[in-house]
């Protein structure tokens, strides 16, 4: 019981404290590549803090759905984070079959984000909603395949055990599959968090983007919650990638946590580098790439089935 409460506090602390930092690291990396100074590392903290203190402007066409989007967008990553281990810190909640719940939890936030976007009646936001639901439709099978690979290797059906102690030994026995799903999971993280090459988090008005366009009409605390929720979602999916990448333990809890945080920051730097050197994909190429990724994860599963 005591460990569960400890895990819960550590989880919440990491989630609330660390999540906005990652976006700052990405921004700094990109600025370095472009030869700029860039915004401070803690910029997102300032932004969220500022937005929480501001008033709101709400479109006249909207209903309660519009306000529900940010609420769900914050609550879902919060709950989802409790199902997964943060590096060495085990998941506070785990049960057999929680991987399915985890996937559908994100479906819930997608449902409300898309509906909130459509609620404004603007064609821009409608466009974003379409893209969000369509692309994630192709990313979902990948997530399931990745989880099945891990379930097969660990012999368990809860995320805590799948990303748990057995992962380190699995790297010895099934390195190729794990390598492939690491790539796939990383790409899913990029898709779900709307990073380049799938979406450009910096543009606001080009017809190329997905997530940013859906939240055009949100303002004040609502926008703050959306930003915070997006950062948390990034942390949650990123934590899975980092755990897959750094499965081992040193035996020292504090050191392990530091390693995990280091891994997260490293991932943020990698994403920053990717965003600096790559262009956004053409929109029509995205479904192709996503199908390719799901096929890759399918193939990694076939390697194990043999």
């Amino acid at each position: 019981m005591r460990t569960t409460i400890l895990q819960l506090f550590l989880h919440l602390f990491l989630l609330f404290g660390l999540s906005p930092l990652l976006s700052g690291v990405i921004g700094k990396t990109k600025a370095l590549f472009a030869g700029r100074v860039g915004p401070p590392l803690l910029q997102l903290y300032f932004d969220i803090w500022k937005l929480f203190g501001k008033g709101m402007v709400i479109s006249r066409t909207t209903t309660w759905i519009f306000r529900a989007g940010p609420v769900v967008g914050l609550a879902v990553p919060l709950l989802a984070s409790l199902l997964i281990p943060f590096g060495p810190v085990g998941a506070p909640i785990s049960f057999s079959g929680d991987l399915i719940f985890f996937v559908y939890l994100f479906g819930l936030s997608r449902f409300f984000t898309a509906c909130a976007a459509l609620d404004t009646g603007s064609s821009f936001e409608g466009m974003g909603a379409v893209r969000e639901v369509t692309f994630s439709c192709l990313a979902e099978p990948t997530l399931f395949f990745v989880f099945i690979v891990l379930a097969r290797l660990s012999g368990s059906f809860s995320l805590d055990a799948m990303f748990g102690q057995t992962l380190a030994t699995s790297w010895h026995t099934a390195a190729p599959s794990l390598l492939l799903i690491l790539v796939c999971l990383f790409i899913v993280t990029l898709v779900e968090n709307c990073r380049i090459p799938f979406d450009d988090p910096n543009t606001h008005l080009e017809l190329t983007m997905i997530h940013e366009v859906m939240v055009l009409d949100h303002s004040g605390p609502d926008l703050g919650m959306i930003l915070y929720g997006a950062a948390m979602k990034f942390l949650v999916l990123g934590a899975l990638v980092v755990r897959l990448f750094l499965p081992g333990t040193t035996g020292n809890m504090a050191l392990d946590i530091l390693l995990f945080i280091g891994g997260l920051l490293f991932m943020a730097v990698v994403i920053g580098v990717i965003e600096s050197v790559m262009a956004r994909l053409r929109l029509l190429r995205i479904p192709q790439l996503l199908v390719g990724v799901s096929l890759l994860s399918f193939f990694s599963l076939i390697l194990l089935l043999r």
């Binding site: 199908v291 096929l295 399918f298 193939f299």
Partner: peptide
Amino acid sequence: TLILGTLATAGAFI
């Protein structure tokens, strides 16, 4: 073709 290719690969492995 990509899907067919993956299925063929899976078939080859099995």
